[in-house]
Design a binder for these strands. Structure first.
Lengths: 346, 346
DNA sequence: ACCGAGAATGAACACGTTTTCACTTCGCGT
DNA sequence: ACGCGAAGTGAAAACGTGTTCATTCTCGGT
């Protein structure tokens, strides 16, 4: 493969395909970007030859002129965190199907701002950014990404401070926590559960704030006293220690709402293996997320779930729409939660 | 920012920096790629102005001329799989520190070849590829990636069929399974355990083959009869069902070697919650990997571990070396395993 | 004051596309 | 036969950088 098209650097170029097919290089470009007119038989010939030569338009060159890299930056504090790994997994599949690819970055695990990382990521020119940084305001984020379209991922209700007069300033995915939490509280109420404790996640994170707030609202609406709050950080180990502390030093509880499934596992293990209590007979436990492990027999956790695939579909829809119409008004989609009843309650 | 440097598309260009600093555009390029000579004060001025303008060399343009994208393709069947998510996490951090970024792709979950995906990934021109595709030979993989340098990730011993006369044909990371497995078998032998069962992973996967083979070798060397083999696929659910089947229909066992930690969890849960057996009193269980959940109280798993961070360091070292010296002879590094003793044995 | 070597500099080209803009060809109605 | 839009075509200009090569500058030694 070195007679006239030099096959430099190992990849075929549009020039070679053109020569082989007796067409101009422009025709080759047109064959791949269908929106301009080109005689059908010609396109067919070009595509066949391209296939033969294993040719694909070079993405760097394409990005240079079009300004689109087809990369979606994903910033995440911890890939191992089960919920997030599930989301990354689904997201990668979905983006792949739409001609994009996931560009993964890791940030500090406290959900806070990381200017250094953001600048670094910006250098790769992602077309859009999905940030798992719950403590950062969108307006702060957007200042560091001039060209990219940021989608700020979080779970709570719309945040008034980030809204303009005519609605939200940025595309947003909202999760209405009400449904699942209300079902859970109703279920507990049915068992005459009295002392309900909320084990928090990372205190300042938006999802944690939203979950606690909604829990208070729901309990008040049902005529229950507000829950006691124990500080956690979404991790197994902290939940484990906090639970022991709650029962050894504190007043104990009849039911514990954990801010996510992983910390619910910590709660359950502390109750059973350290405190000698039974779940659900002595203490009932509810989690958030419904990750894959929640149905494992050792835990069999009752938890507040929302549909992951639905969420990812919505997210990809938002991203694609924004890329096609950069100046369209900000959009938001709303998802709902529901309760998955398993063995840790009832 | 539109007086002469037009700030097109939102990003500053080298041209603008040059104009602002009264230098030629070439000088700006030199200031960023230090290997050519440039008056120090000039470089300083340029870098200062660049910072002011928030300028970074465009990676697409840079890739176009240099042929380097600084992207490392990572192909993985399942991001949620805990061991792999841990590896992706560590890898992303390490690559980030070296000026690269992780480009994530998802493939079929049976570890087999996926030409479609490979062609798709090739389109993004990654500088190197890390593939979690244990059923695919490196030689097959390399056929689909003309320019990229593939690193084939697997756990077993060197595979003779992929070696040339003067050693291995490709860079490789080998894991010597012997240490941890031998310790585990010795421990079981100490308890006079007789009927040992190996619960396989995905049957054709290299890591599974290597683990089973080494288990046989070690047991033979210690004068034990070969283990019975039960078919699994690395998943919790399959392990759960297979264990029930083993005890209800089959002969049962005194100890079960699970091919990874997740399936060990499935084994434990089936024994305790479905078959009413005690672990470790009635049946002992050993896993592979030592993922984060293995120390959780519900499982407290004894398992064969090797150092993840050491592994990732070695991997990154291999990649960087290959990028700097594309024609250097193939290199291999070897890692060792050890046993982490917890509650499921003894 | 002069020469020469090495450092510093900038013009021009290369990288592989997409897009614009004239130009040619084609088919069809009068 | 003529004209006239529409469809098809290719030359040339971007896109933003790295690199080569010839030129200019600097400075120490005679």
């Amino acid at each position: 493969m070195d007679k006239d098209g030099q096959m430099a650097r190992g990849r075929a170029t549009a020039e070679m395909v053109a020569r082989q097919a007796n067409v101009s290089r422009v025709a080759v470009s047109r064959a791949f970007n269908s929106h301009t007119s080109l005689k059908p038989e010609k396109r067919e010939l070009i595509l066949r030859i391209a296939q033969e030569l294993n040719y694909t338009p070079d993405r760097a060159a394409r990005a240079l002129v079009s300004g689109r890299t087809h990369l979606i930056g994903v910033i995440v504090p911890d890939v191992c965190s089960y919920w997030e790994s599930q989301e990354i997994d689904a997201l990668t599949t979905a983006l792949q199907n739409e001609g994009f690819a996931t560009l993964l970055f890791k940030t500090r695990s406290d959900f806070s701002m990381d200017e250094k990382l953001l600048a670094y990521m910006r250098g790769f020119n992602p077309d859009s950014v999905i940030a798992f940084m719950e403590n950062v305001r969108p307006s702060t984020l957007v200042r560091f990404l001039d060209r990219a379209v940021p989608i700020y991922v979080h779970y709570p209700h719309p945040d008034a401070e980030d809204d303009g007069e005519d609605g939200p300033l940025y595309d947003r995915l909202n999760v209405l926590q009400h449904g699942g939490i209300d079902q859970a509280v109703a279920l507990l109420q049915g068992y005459n559960t009295r002392r309900i404790v909320y084990l928090s996640g990372a205190v300042k994170s938006r999802s944690n704030v939203a979950r606690e707030k909604m829990l208070r609202t729901v309990m008040a609406a049902r005529g229950l006293p507000p829950p006691r709050v124990v500080i956690g950080d979404y991790s197994y180990d902290t939940a484990y220690a906090a639970t022991i502390d709650l029962f050894r030093v504190g007043d104990g509880a009849d039911a514990i709402f954990a801010s996510n499934d992983v910390s619910a596992f910590g709660v359950i293990d502390a109750l059973r293996h350290e405190l000698g209590l039974r779940v659900p007979e002595d203490v009932k436990v509810v989690g958030f997320d419904d990750i894959a492990q929640s149905h494992w027999k050792s835990y069999d956790l009752t938890t507040v779930k929302f549909d992951l695939s639905e969420r990812v579909r919505a997210l990809v829809r938002l991203i694609l729409r924004r890329l096609n119409e950069p100046d369209a008004p900000a959009l938001q989609e709303t998802l709902h939660t529901s309760l998955v009843v398993r063995g840790t309650v009832g």
